[in-house]
Write a protein that binds this DNA or RNA. Structure first.
Length: 108
RNA sequence: UAAGUCGGUUAUACGGUCGCGGGGGCAGGGAGAGCCUGUCAAUGAGGAAAGUCCGAGCGUUUUAGAAACAGGGUGCCGGAGAAAUCCCGGUGAAGGUGACUUUAAGGAAAGUGCAACAGAAAAUAACCGCCGAUUAUUCGGUAAGGAUGAAAAGGCGCGGUAAGAGCGCACCGCCCUUGCGGUAACGCGAGGGGCUGUGUAAACCCCACCCGACGCAAGAUUGACAAAUCGUUUCACAAGGGAGUUUCACCGAAACGGUUUAACAAAUAUCGCUGGGGGAUAUUGGUAACAAUAUUCGUAGAUAAAUGACCGUACACGACAGAACUCGGCUUACAGACCGUCUUAAAAA
RNA sequence: GCGGGUGUAAUUCAAUGGUAGAAUUCCAGCCUUCCAAGCUGGCAGCGUGGGUCCGAUUCCCAUCACCCGCU
């Protein structure tokens, strides 16, 4: 996942949070809003733990998002918000991300 | 051998595939610019990166200048260091059988305050007691003994006395003088004074010394808010403003008019932003902190913020934990492994 | 990243270094035909670890948690 696919500016985050729609799965919440480019941001709160744990979660989310990257039909802004759990695994995130993308019909 | 004490080292390793950050080389595109694309081989978190408890660099504020006050800090001695209250070595005190550990450790005769409960009394000591005198219930002397308390008016013994008392003496403690050792704190001894002065300064305080404030979200560049600059007028060495307060030093102040600035403008677009009191090894000096010399290494620089996924091999099956301007110290968290110092106890020689 | 502040009963707050207190809540009893209200009584505690002190909620140091401000 290259740098260009990341959501960075606070304006964009506010846009997504205020006007976007939400989808849920067992371990995360996804907020999305249609746009010209495909971008994804990750919001991990301090409830998950220290900076090591939070970085670990972001890496796993980025990795799982990367695996879906070639299959998108339309362009959206996404914000992924994981829920607090004891353990975080890549499998879990991939499965629930796939479930959500099917539900929303984002993939080809 | 067991139990401990103090100190140090290490912080999964190796290989393959995909992916990420910032640089570099090469090739191509492009009028041009690391502007875009491709590719190559390197490189990319810690001992605490953490807490932000101290200090320094660096930046802004009048190049932070003087005096007094306020506020804050420090407080045995010597050393190291750019500096620091926490580093190193010692002294005293406290704790431990010991190795060793801890230590904000000046002043209570400058002044003020506080000392609950208990107790006669918590600081100008006198309730009971003891002794003497006597109008027989008062006066005087005294501080040995007395339910307390954290602390009770130098301790203990002998002499002494009406009873007692440093009243006298020995030892200890205290104070003064002095000899020796030590750079010093201080230690060891000698002589004298006879001794009234409770504790608390991590209560206010006094004394000595030190400190301006704010912090990289500091701040600078381009653009904007607006600013800069020029001219005129008015006031004038005054007022007011500019650094915690006051006094001084330093900076003149206000109003009006003109000139300059095409577009793009962002919670970092660019700079600050990483070579620095750097690391490693060896030698020398020093008990040590550390210093000097030589050789060698080239070592993250992001900005919604880079280290992940999968596979294989090995074992101890991987703890605490993620740079955000930099560095020195401290504190706190931490699986396991290894190395060394010394102590105590038991046994053997 | 930097700079501040606060931790006391289940909750909201007090307390000069000397026995931690008030209101609400909760529990038990009384009252009532029953409930509420009222009355009486009770339970429950200084974030954690050191130090100073005879003695710390209070003073000092460290640590943990929470909150606020600065672009």
């Amino acid at each position: 996942m290259t740098f260009d696919y990341r959501l960075k500016k606070e304006k964009d985050f506010n846009l997504v949070f205020n006007k976007g729609k939400r989808l849920f799965s067992s371990c995360m919440t996804v907020v999305y809003f249609p746009s010209k480019e495909l971008k994804a941001g990750f919001a991990v709160s301090k409830k998950h733990g220290g900076s090591v744990k939070r970085n670990r979660i972001k890496r796993l989310l980025r990795e799982s998002f990367r695996s879906f990257l070639p299959d998108f039909g339309q362009n959206f802004f996404f914000v992924f918000i994981p829920k607090v759990q004891n353990e975080y695994t890549l499998k879990q995130f991939k499965e629930s991300m796939g479930y959500i993308f099917k539900k929303g019909g984002f993939l080809k």
